[in-house]
Design a binder for these strands. Sequence first.
DNA 1: AAAGTGTTGTTGCAAATGCAACAGAAAGGG
DNA 2: CCCTTTCTGTTGCATTTGCAACAACACTTT
Lengths: 210, 210
Amino acid sequence: MILLENPLFAGISASELSQMEDCFQMERKTYREKEELPIGGKIGILLSGCISLNRLDIDGNLSMLEYMTEGGIFGAFFSLFADTSDLMVICEKACTVVFIDTFHITKRCHNACHHHTVVVENLLQLMTEKVQQLSEKVEILSHRSIREKLLCYFRMQSGKQGSVHFELPFSFSALASYLCVDRSAMTRELRKMKAEGLLEVNGRNICLYA
Amino acid sequence: MILLENPLFAGISASELSQMEDCFQMERKTYREKEELPIGGKIGILLSGCISLNRLDIDGNLSMLEYMTEGGIFGAFFSLFADTSDLMVICEKACTVVFIDTFHITKRCHNACHHHTVVVENLLQLMTEKVQQLSEKVEILSHRSIREKLLCYFRMQSGKQGSVHFELPFSFSALASYLCVDRSAMTRELRKMKAEGLLEVNGRNICLYA
DNA sequence: AAAGTGTTGTTGCAAATGCAACAGAAAGGG
DNA sequence: CCCTTTCTGTTGCATTTGCAACAACACTTT
């Protein structure tokens, strides 16, 4: 994937970007599977490959917080916890990353360049999306029963896809994990809901009546 | 509360701020209880009084998402959902608000003012904190049992206050509501945990042994 | 073809949880 | 001071849930 296609640079021309690459002192680096990547003070943009964001558990276990494919942005502004001390970014598939020091984004330069403004706008936009995405998850997880979680999630999907018919972007196993409930219990609840006529299921296609 | 004390303007002098008030065309408005405030395209800074952020439920009910006291920041960049169409900001106690059009924050001016840089840095910092705060809540709610949620929350508090002794910032009722569990069931679980020697409770002071 | 991997559906059972209801304690307001 | 509200602790009970285990199916790899 090309750097220019990254949402952080939406609305920026190729020539502006190459100018910015010098001005922002962007660094391009490659990593191999299982190598560790730095986090502090930089934004990382994943051009190819995959990485994971992990936290060192209190029991010493590594638990994966996020899995990212090409186009993903990580590091400063996006790291999920206050203390990055127990966070680790690990290369999952050989990857290429562009690093930008946060300093270059927040500082004002005397040129008042158009592209600089745009990057800050894009960054704010991306963070707003992150906030929204997390808020949605909180809203779903705030419900106490499996049924309520399912309905909440389904309504959101229905809203996003603009129809009572919509398609799961997940497998049902992954959905259970996303909703933080037991898969077999979720299947059981879905069966009940079908029986009550609340919805219909065909593979990953769902039709919501409630 | 004075505008200058707001975290958005941390590191900015009084003279810089008054200059900025003109340059950014900040508007100061007052509202009475139950009045509705605008959201779109602006940041609102709450100087005094209280507001609430509400969502119009699918069943037509208003559910409160956030309650904010003086110093709070709301609106663009902070609104929790993608479509602000069903969001409402309502004045809970007579309040004074300063509005800033987002345009003035993201645009580059030719002066490359120090204070402009600082405000953008502060804004990014505030949003980062919001992301962290939401991520923490997701992590807590991801656990399935009341005991695990409690332990997760207690460990975070213990970490933040830097000791196995720490104080709840909440009443226990509010804690149950924050963890999205039944209060009586939570009390029951706390009793068990005390019996097992996992922790001690004195009013809102907690000592965590696990 | 065979073996392996991941997804989905099912069930029994024990344990956890929510719910409702009640009562005493603590805090705040007039 | 009394009155009201909120917080806290308790219990019984029905329901929900997680867990473990198994089977059928699709798909990929060898």
